[in-house]
């Protein structure tokens, strides 16, 4: 491993991808929708940060995975197909440095996107309102960055093991919907095993303990819940977040880090042995 080579690759990835027109479009949408959701939460005026958060988590858990997948899915397969990667690997650089450099560079793109999207919107909201929960908002942005990095890592893994750009895009779409759909499956199992969804809203019942494992299986849901916990929100859409003690901000962040590091390690292992 060579830190200098990793930084060179990271810089190139950053410079190439930060100018990606789709990234710029999605970041602009993120910025506008954050301000719009704040106005909606404030009943026509810019609303307080906490009221805005429930909308923000939907935006974050939708857009950051999309950005992460968009950046990562073609980073290996695409460059294998167009020949650029064979040029890079003919240079004095190790394959592990290429993977780590790509991950680092693309993660920096995520940081810039979150800072320009949510950061600027946060600034606008804080200027227009009084008591801003800056600590919570900062944590929310960090969690959004982590979610983006997680999906960069996942899509980079698929890009490293699959042969074609189109297949790695397919895998990216699959992992996006995996995170979206697993909650619905869990609700289905809950209802099928005699649980009442109506009782959840009226507070007569709360989720059984097994239900909370879902937060560790769906990166999007885990990240949403972590944000709510960061803001100290105990109820969402009328359902109380009555969690067992093992579901807390620490365990969720730990699981999100595992979701990020594991695919990255696997990508390094598989990429070492693959034909370019």
């Amino acid at each position: 491993m060579n830190a200098r080579k990793i930084m060179i690759i990271a810089k190139k990835e950053f410079m190439d991808n930060v100018r990606n027109k789709w990234l710029i479009v999605i970041t602009a949408i993120l910025l506008l929708m954050t301000i719009a959701s704040s106005i909606a939460a404030g009943g026509g005026e810019i609303g307080e940060m906490e009221a805005t958060v429930t909308t923000l988590i939907t935006l974050s858990s939708m857009f950051l995975p999309i950005i992460g997948i968009m950046l990562g899915y073609g980073t290996i397969t695409g460059e294998v197909e167009n020949g650029a990667l064979s040029v890079v690997l003919s240079y004095p650089v190790k394959r592990i440095d290429v993977i780590l450099g790509k991950f680092l560079g693309l993660s920096c793109v995520i940081f810039v996107s979150v800072l320009s999207g949510f950061g600027i919107a946060g600034l606008v909201i804080s200027l227009a309102t009084s008591a801003t929960q800056w600590k919570g908002y900062l944590l929310f942005m960090l969690l959004a960055m982590l979610l983006g990095m997680l999906y960069v890592s996942l899509s980079l893994f698929f890009s490293a093991i699959l042969k074609r750009r189109a297949t790695s895009l397919g895998a990216g779409i699959f992992i996006f919907f995996w995170g979206m759909i697993i909650g619905t499956i869990w609700i289905g199992i809950y209802a099928a095993t005699g649980g009442s969804i109506a009782d959840l809203y009226t507070g007569k019942a709360s989720f059984p303990e097994w239900f909370w494992y879902e937060l560790f299986l769906s990166p999007q849901d885990g990240n949403q819940t972590a944000t709510l916990l960061a803001f100290g929100i105990k109820k969402i859409m009328g359902i109380s977040l009555d969690m067992p003690s093992w579901v807390n901000l620490g365990t969720i962040i730990f699981s999100q880090l595992l979701w990020t590091v594991t695919p990255l390690i696997l990508a390094i292992i598989f990429f070492r042995r693959r034909d370019i």
Partner: peptide
């Protein structure tokens, strides 16, 4: 020691 040019290469679009 090696300089390599692959067939039908394309580089980074935004650079």
């Amino acid at each position: 020691e090696i300089g390599f040019l692959p067939e039908r290469v394309s580089f980074y679009r935004n650079l």
